[in-house]
Design a protein around this nucleic acid. Structure first.
Length: 276
DNA sequence: CATATGTCCTGAGAGC
DNA sequence: TGCTCTCAGGACATAT
């Protein structure tokens, strides 16, 4: 998402508006009139990421923060369905001219996501430690172990704890544990050195590949990139949403589905040995 | 304190 | 066909 909207860097915010929504209009913070006063006329200087949020940084150091959660999309192209448009941000081209996006949209079917305007101080409080752990794309092996090894929780559950490690989502947790050959229910405090090492490697591999493939568009088709194109990483999934299919690694056992912390986990019972 | 569960919202697909 | 039920790339408040 962050990379997809990079073409807006250098443009100026011309307008911010909530779009008419199905039932409950999206709530923004601060109130839309204050939001607009602080954003309109400001130049976009950067697009950053904090865990799973996208930050559009303005020349005042305020940032428009998109938190898409399950079904939110950040788009610079026409949306998949106008019904669930929530926020429109009008953009003015820079002096250089050329083809630049004229609007940035926040689209969200389920409406669990949110959009906020945060000052630099608020960003530090919301996204710095201890609210978010080290980022999953840059965390070192030592940091990974240090942040997780004390916990007695199952490793799959701990991987989703954004305070321990920022940026891993449900489907990717299953994928990386399969690559690392670790059972998802194994307590963190019982992982061995070799397992931490494999997990650290798998973490980077899975996320980088998923990014290269523009994410995973699951069977409901919701996820799209910033240009409203489907991702391709769903075709690379080895276990997620593949219950009862043969494991692509051992080709003998069938993928199993269990529920941990109310969320689906997929794994191979042969490649990922059960904890004793 | 650490860990577990309920909650927000809508639509797709399974099962009857 | 049409109904009900379950589940979904998530995060957080509240309960245990």
């Amino acid at each position: 998402m962050r990379r997809g909207i990079l073409p807006i860097v250098g443009l100026t915010v011309a307008d911010v508006a909530r779009v008419a929504c199905p039932r409950k209009p999206i709530e923004v913070a601060p109130r839309i009139d204050v939001f607009r006063r602080r954003a309109v006329g400001r130049r976009i200087v950067d697009v950053r990421r904090a865990g799973k949020r996208v930050l559009v940084v303005l020349d005042t150091d305020d940032a428009i923060v998109f938190e898409p959660r399950m079904t939110g999309l950040v788009l610079i192209a026409d949306p998949p369905d106008a019904t669930y448009l929530r926020i429109r941000i009008g953009l003015e081209p820079d002096a250089g001219g050329g083809e630049t996006p004229r609007e940035l949209w926040f689209w969200d079917r389920r409406g669990l996501g949110n959009v906020r305007l945060l000052s630099a101080t608020e960003q530090a409080a919301a996204f710095g430690p201890p609210r978010l752990g080290p980022d999953a794309l840059s965390i070192t092996l030592d940091e990974l172990r240090a942040h997780l090894c004390q916990s007695r929780r199952p490793i799959k559950v701990a991987l989703l704890d954004q305070r321990a490690l920022a940026g891993v989502g449900n489907l990717y947790a299953s994928e990386m544990l399969h690559r690392a050959a670790i059972h998802p229910a194994r307590p963190c405090d019982r992982l061995r050195a070799g397992q931490w090492s494999r997990l650290h490697a798998a973490l980077g591999e899975v996320l980088r590949e998923a990014i290269a493939h523009e994410g995973s568009t699951l069977s409901d088709g919701t996820y799209r990139n910033a240009l409203n194109q489907a991702g391709g990483y769903q075709n690379c999934h080895r276990v997620y949403d593949r219950e009862n299919e043969p494991c692509p690694a051992c080709r003998t056992a069938r993928i199993r589905r269990i529920v941990q912390a109310q969320r689906a986990t997929f794994f191979c019972p042969k490649c990922q040995r059960a904890p004793r």
